[in-house]
Write a protein that binds this DNA or RNA. Sequence first.
DNA 1: ATAGGGTTAG
Length: 487
Amino acid sequence: MRRASPYSYAALERLLREHFPFPRRLLQLHALLLTSGALLPDPERSAAATAITAFPYNCLAHAHLRLSAAPSSSSPPSAPLRLFSAMLTAGARPNCHSFPTLLKSASASGSASAAAALHAQCLRRGLAADRFIACSLVSAYGRTGHPSRDARKVFDEMEGSPDLAACNALLDALCLAGDLEAAGTFFERMAARDAVSWTTLVSGLSRGGRHRCALEVFRGFLLDSSMGRRLEEATLVSVLSACANLGGAEGLAAGMAVHAYMVCHEVELTAFLGTALVDMYGKHGRLGCCRSAFDAAHDKKVCTWNALLSALANHGMETEALVKFEMMRAEGFLPNQITFLAMLTACARAGLVEVGLYWFEAMVAEYRVTPLMVHYGCVVDLLGRAGRSVEAVQVIERMPFAPDASVWGALLTACKLHGNVLLALEIGQKLMALEPQQSGRYVTIRNVYLEDGNWQAGMRMGEVMQEAGIKKTVGQSSVVLHGSSSP
DNA sequence: ATAGGGTTAG
């Protein structure tokens, strides 16, 4: 039997308050409090005095949430949710400070059901009208479940006029729901806008593929904001991402202008900004600038390495990609899905079949990284280019999900390369069923027939295309180089 | 202030 706890809750609260800014200390305290039983109700006191307050739980939940974002953290994003159950068991009543953290935890762990359950809890406890909670609900619904519908509903039912944070949360929800028109309209009608509002719209548009639009909004922000105000990290990262993904000289020029701004204003090259810069130069094929940005980023993270490795792998620097990968591991960084994607890409392009297969194996067995469709696509490409189409087919058959057009496409390219006509035509049928509007596929199949000397079948493909009303995709042409067709 | 809104690699 546990003895009565000798701790006063007031002292416990002071302890937590003192260490609140340091989440790691709080987690250590959490472990201590659990083992010492300080969080348990005191059986020797009356029922009323026994009730522990929400405060210690709120502090600890928040510490877990802050740490779950940190690299190599031991606490999952759902840790606050588990604390919530412990809190209810201990008889502490959650208050208005509890739910914002819990809702953020729900959305960070992508649990729509948790968000809805917490919403129900707020309603039952009469806390749903709290400004902070309503704002968190809008944000949580924006990231899980049915974004625009539920987020909008909470927003519309907010008491009084919604504040700026709630507007920003809804703006983000509209962007995440893919309703960029609604987001734009909502932004225009907002009574006030701050840097977060502008950044949300810039990143939302860019995420939705409207990179030029995102840049225009950013220029609007520059004109709107009073001169001399420094741009914040998140704003710069968002606009650099738009620049990275806006092809052509336009994206590069804008990206360089942003970089110039950063140099002029001596903006610290944090991991986020360094990664964004490495990615921007990398996507535009400026490997020299890409490497310099990488070297200048003092606080590197796995993402930073990934941006560099992807750039090298995609721009003919396969050997350097492999060498940098070794450096990355030597420095103790743990490769993830994206790292391995870059490595497999490099191996496929360099024709390093065995090395690529080795890393694919190690990725699963040693690093416990679950392969995505794109990883399988790389392996199929890797085997296919080497003429090992039987093994490539085996890989496809062993995939835990149905192959998509990109995987079949990789195999099709391999078949064409090695004149495996029968398999090529079989894959062609699958591809036309999966993506009937992709003109490139029909052209490839037709070329397979033609190269095989089957003129009749080749001509028939042309007719099939016409009958299906398929036009060549605008802005895409097919060039036959050394027998392989590339868009 | 014990709490809310925006950010990177494919």
